[in-house]
Nucleic acid binder design. Structure first.
Ligand code: FES
Ligand code: FES
Lengths: 153, 153
DNA sequence: TTAATTCCTACTAAATTAGTAGTATATTTG
DNA sequence: CAAATATACTACTAATTTAGTAGGAATTAA
């Protein structure tokens, strides 16, 4: 499971991505309110994302956060990794959170590891080709499908 | 990430699967030693697996645990679920550990959920077609690849 | 100068996971 | 039957991780 932190980070970045056209700083409190994220927690998360070079900030009155990259360049896999979420199901197959399996005789020959490796590859394949922009696009498509209310087919 | 508990469960079941030919009860302490699992913890895990009808036990001297199904019928996805590990990355896409996403306006239209759903499907596809027997088979193949020592060519 | 905002360190609280203790109950074997 | 050897089961404790908060320093606009 992804941590709340990771989910909040993605949501916040999506909020910024939506306003990317003029990309002027957006206040923490504004994002927090829109996305239903505890204000102070979000503050810490955005700070961390800035340290990772994915968003920028402006201090003082009229300050806030903005994206440093185009929404098409920010991949889900990256956001997940940066906010501490390993994607792999076992540490022995994780690229970024690798730890050897002490009980297993040999990683080379471990059948379980071999399966979990396949799962990781399948997951990464999807997550690393999906950008913030892609998610917004999906949202658009879904909302068309789900409520074709006043549109004349 | 899978819990230790889940990993231990899989390992223990693989131990039993290896001896499935005569399928006579194997002692907890024997499994624990072979797989490097804390004895008492394993006891609790096997007990739970029994309650879920995946293994059987015999009490008293000469007692122990044995598989109730053929190793080909026990799927990784099942073991993971039974031992408490959700496979999905978010509760809103989990079949067995579903919880609604409070901050999201609508699950129907949530772009993030839509991607995570794809990831879950890809993972389940692999995990639900891989049995204990399959894992043992992989192990066999891997060990042939990795040490073609005394084999001619 | 004041108000509004991010920056940053250091916590606290809650939840989850990992593991243990100890006793009851069942079974084999002599 | 009695002793030895298992599992069954309940109820903890300890360790780790995750979620969230407090509060003041630094920065900027007006
Ligand atoms: S090496 Fe990691 S599960 Fe065996
Ligand atoms: S509904 Fe679960 S992430 Fe949006």
């Amino acid at each position: 499971m992804l941590q709340k932190k990771t989910k909040y980070a993605i949501k916040a970045l999506l909020s910024l991505a939506k306003e990317y056209k003029d990309n002027k700083p957006m206040k923490i409190s504004e994002i927090a309110e829109k996305e239903g994220i505890p204000r102070k927690f979000l503050e810490a998360i955005l700070l961390e994302l800035r340290h990772h070079g994915i968003v920028g900030s402006k201090m003082g009155a009229t300050g806030g956060y903005y994206l440093l990259k185009h929404p098409e360049e920010i991949m889900l896999s990256n956001v997940i990794r940066l906010t501490g979420g390993p994607i792999a199901l076992l540490p022995c197959v994780s690229l970024n959170f690798y730890e050897p399996c002490v009980e297993c005789v040999s990683e080379e020959v471990c059948g379980l590891r071999n399966v979990i490796l396949e799962v990781r590859e399948a997951s990464i394949k999807i997550l690393s080709k999906t950008s913030l922009a892609d998610i917004l696009l999906r949202e658009l498509k879904l909302s068309k499908k789900v409520k074709p209310l006043k549109t004349k087919r």
